[in-house]
Amino acid sequence: MTETGDDWTALLLAVRDRQDRAAFAALFRHFAPRIKGFLMKSGASDALAEECAQDVMATLWQKAHLFDPARASVATWVFTIARNRRIDALRRAKRPEPEDLPWGPEPEPDQQAVLEMAEDTARLGAALARLPPPQRDLIEKAYFGDLTHTEIATQTGLPLGTIKSRIRLALDRLRLQMS
């Protein structure tokens, strides 16, 4: 299996729908080292980062039913869990979440939308790797926790437009189903 975004989606859906342990192990091998690295770059010790990485992956198992592949890639979703865990572990400011959309993820996500979301995320990763070092450095500092909100200037030139429109479409579709 090649390591592309839509494969991670399929694995997470196998965890969600069948509690598939082999699928979980594959997700773990890919994401746990990244979560641990993310936490260490954010200032956690090796031991704390290891504990948090296991914790984040356990949360992924437990909350798999909330994953909506039309609105986020697996990497994005893992990031949000890891970020919240970091906020708790490193005693940063509490972060209330927006209201849940009451209808939750679609039971049968639109396959085309899921595929496009995964492709857009892969393109974003590639574009990020090509950014000029000063700009990339700034984004790293923001996400690894070395910049305060007043130091985070408006980022221009980030290729976020297509992902934003795709998420917006997914939200509109959900709202439409409800009305």
């Binding site: 192990a25 773990f28 091998r29 746990a32 080292p33 990244r34 979560i35 641990k36 690295g37 993310f38 260490m40 770059k41 090796d46 980062a49 290891e50 990485a53 296991q54 609105r71 986020a72 890639s73 990497a75 994005t76 979703w77 893992v78 990031f79 949000t80 890891a82 970020r83 927006p98 857009d120 995320t121 974003l124 990763g125 990020l128 790797a129 984004i139 790293e140 996400y143 690894f144 980030l158 976020l160 437009g161 992902i163 934003k164 429109s165 998420i167 917006r168 939200l171």
Partner: peptide, 26 residues
């Protein structure tokens, strides 16, 4: 939707990180 795009950026940043896990991590 715009926040979702920034979270995707966070996901892409997370993807660039890497650390050695403990032997019995899984």
């Amino acid at each position: 939707a715009r926040l979702g795009a920034y979270d995707a950026l966070g996901g892409a940043m997370l993807d660039t990180c890497q650390a050695q896990l403990a032997g019995d991590s899984l």
